[in-house]
Amino acid sequence: TTVHLNGVTYTFPNPEEARKFVEKLAKTLNLKVEVHNGTYHIE
């Protein structure tokens, strides 16, 4: 599972880890999250 954040790409072997990371980040920084083909894009 891949996460794109400010031009940096993070790869998680575990989709659940990626989801938790994204949710925590989005909540902390009040960001918008979009998912395209299983890839998270955070703005």
Rank of each mutant, 00 (worst) to 15 (best):
V22W: 02
L29G: 14
G38M: 03
E17D: 12
F21H: 01
L29R: 02
T1K: 07
E23H: 05
N6C: 15
T39D: 15
L5Y: 15
N37L: 04
K20S: 10
T9D: 06
K20M: 10
H41Q: 04
F21D: 00
L31P: 01
I42N: 02
V22P: 00
T28C: 12
N37G: 07
N30M: 06
G38L: 03
N14S: 12
R19V: 07
R19P: 00
V3R: 00
G7I: 02
Y10F: 12
T1D: 06
G38N: 06
K32R: 11
T9N: 07
R19F: 09
A26W: 05
P15K: 09
V3K: 00
E17Y: 08
Y40W: 14
K27N: 14
T28D: 14
V22M: 04
N14F: 06
T28G: 08
V22T: 02
L31G: 05
E16Q: 10
V3A: 03
T11D: 07
T2Y: 13
E23K: 05
E34F: 14
P15I: 09
V3I: 05
H41N: 05
H4I: 15
T11I: 12
K24T: 14
T2M: 14
T1G: 10
V33C: 10
Y10N: 01
N30G: 10
V8K: 12
V8N: 08
K20E: 11
L25A: 04
R19E: 08
G38F: 03
E34K: 09
L25S: 01
L31S: 03
V22H: 01
N37I: 02
T11V: 13
K32M: 05
N37R: 03
Y40K: 01
E43Y: 15
E23G: 02
L25F: 04
K32G: 02
G7S: 06
Y40D: 03
H4C: 09
Y40E: 03
N37S: 04
T1P: 06
H4G: 02
V8T: 10
T28S: 07
G7C: 09
N6D: 10
E23Y: 06
P13N: 12
P15F: 11
N30P: 07
L29T: 09
T28V: 13
G7D: 06
Y10S: 01
L31K: 02
P15D: 13
A18G: 03
K32E: 03
V33L: 04
T9S: 11
E43R: 08
T9M: 13
Y10R: 04
E23C: 07
I42D: 02
V33D: 01
V33S: 01
L25C: 06
H41G: 02
R19K: 12
T39Y: 06
Y10A: 02
F12L: 03
V22Y: 02
A18K: 01
N6M: 12
T39K: 06
L5M: 13
E17L: 14
L31F: 07
E34I: 14
E23R: 04
K27I: 13
T1N: 09
H36A: 06
T11G: 05
H4R: 12
E43F: 15
N37P: 02
A26D: 09
L25N: 02
Y40L: 09
L31C: 10
P13A: 11
N14I: 04
R19M: 10
V22K: 00
G7Y: 05
K32Q: 06
T2I: 14
K24V: 13
K27D: 12
V35F: 15
V3D: 00
A18F: 04
V33R: 00
N14L: 04
E34H: 13
L25M: 05
N30C: 10
A18Q: 01
K32L: 07
V35K: 04
N6F: 15
E43A: 10
T9A: 12
N37H: 06
Y10K: 03
K24L: 14
N6E: 07
L31N: 01
A26T: 11
F21W: 13
L25Q: 02
P15M: 11
A18N: 00
L25K: 01
V8S: 08
E23F: 05
N6I: 06
T28K: 12
V22F: 03
E43L: 14
T28A: 08
H41M: 08
L31T: 04
K20V: 09
A26N: 10
L5C: 14
V35I: 14
E17W: 09
E16Y: 09
V35P: 02
L5H: 08
G7H: 08
L25H: 03
T1M: 08
T1I: 08
V33P: 01
F21L: 03
T1E: 04
H41R: 04
K32P: 02
V3T: 01
L31Q: 03
L31R: 01
